Amino acid sequence: MRHLQSFILGSALSLALAAPALAAQCGNNAGGFGQWKASFAGEAKAAGVGQRGLAALANASYATGTIKADRNQKSFKYSLPKFMQIRGADTIVAQGRKRKARNAGFYQSLEQRYGVPAGVVLAIHGMETGFGGFMGKSAVVSAITTLAYDCRRSAFFVPHAIGALKLVDQGAITPATKGAKHGELGHTQFLPGNALKYGVDADGNGRVDFYNQTDALASTANFLRKKGWKPGQGYQEGQPNFKVIKQWNAATVYQQAIAIMGAKIDG
């Protein structure tokens, strides 16, 4: 019996040692962020994050402004007309038409390669950053790791935090790179995990740069195509490609606005 007990205890200990480490404990204020980073570093390393990414994680700061923004996303609750007014839809359409005409060859090449019309790409570009006019002033790594730590939507943001750290490893961003409050980056505000997966080196310089318009817009078209965009099919509500716009942003009013503006730009 003693031998059996020893065997059981030994087996239990072996299983415990072999079991994967528990996920880093989320929190709702800055107090546990340092402890979470130390724990999350193990998860990040196991996911393939290298030394540069781990150093960026260690130096990340709790982003109070990100948490405030996450708790206060009022614009997505507006009616469609109000949302389009606040977001400057008429200006986006007017500027989008000018941009399409000025660089017709580029947008034609995007549609030929990915099947996504210029109007959709331009509507997203205009909606997200005013065509690159303002790409955010929050540190991407700090913002996205704060959201991965925050209990409200930790599971959603953890893969994007890992993505951001891998982008640092690759040199696509640095620990100082600025983006939106929720860690979105570049001309069309890619979440880091999506940037890592769908980024395209469209200008052929050997690196994907989301702060370069060519790379960013090609990456956006690539994202939509990989998410199921059907070339030649419509993208208004009820048409096959409208559901693909939902993959870019979950808010219905946003999806409707992109579809409307895209059609006006292409019209």
Rank of each mutant, 00 (worst) to 15 (best):
K74I: 14
Q85L: 10
G32K: 11
G32E: 11
Q35I: 11
Q108I: 03
N28A: 08
L54T: 02
F106L: 10
L54Y: 00
F40T: 02
A47C: 01
Q73W: 02
A19S: 12
M84G: 04
D90L: 01
A60V: 05
L57R: 00
N29W: 08
N29P: 08
T64S: 13
I92N: 06
A60L: 02
Q51T: 15
K74S: 11
A89E: 08
D70V: 06
A44V: 00
Q35S: 15
A104Q: 14
F40G: 00
K37G: 02
A89F: 09
Q25L: 10
G27P: 07
Q108N: 13
K82M: 07
T66I: 03
E43D: 13
G105R: 10
A69H: 05
L54H: 01
N103G: 07
A38M: 10
G65F: 06
A94R: 13
S61L: 11
A89G: 10
Y107D: 01
Y78L: 15
G42H: 11
P81T: 12
D70H: 05
A21G: 10
L54D: 00
G31Q: 12
L80P: 08
Y107W: 12
G105L: 09
A58N: 08
A24C: 06
G88S: 08
T91M: 13
Y78R: 11
G96R: 11
R52Y: 03
K68R: 14
V49H: 03
A63F: 02
G31N: 14
A19L: 13
A104L: 15
K77P: 02
A23L: 01
P81D: 05
N59S: 15
K100G: 02
G96D: 06
P20A: 05
A41S: 12
G34A: 14
A41E: 13
G53K: 01
Y107T: 05
W36E: 04
C26E: 02
G42W: 09
L22I: 09
T64A: 12
A38N: 12
Q95H: 07
Q35N: 13
K45H: 08
E43I: 08
Y62K: 06
A60F: 01
Q73E: 08
A21R: 11
A41C: 10
A19V: 06
A55M: 00
L57Q: 06
T66V: 04
A101H: 04
Y107R: 04
R52I: 02
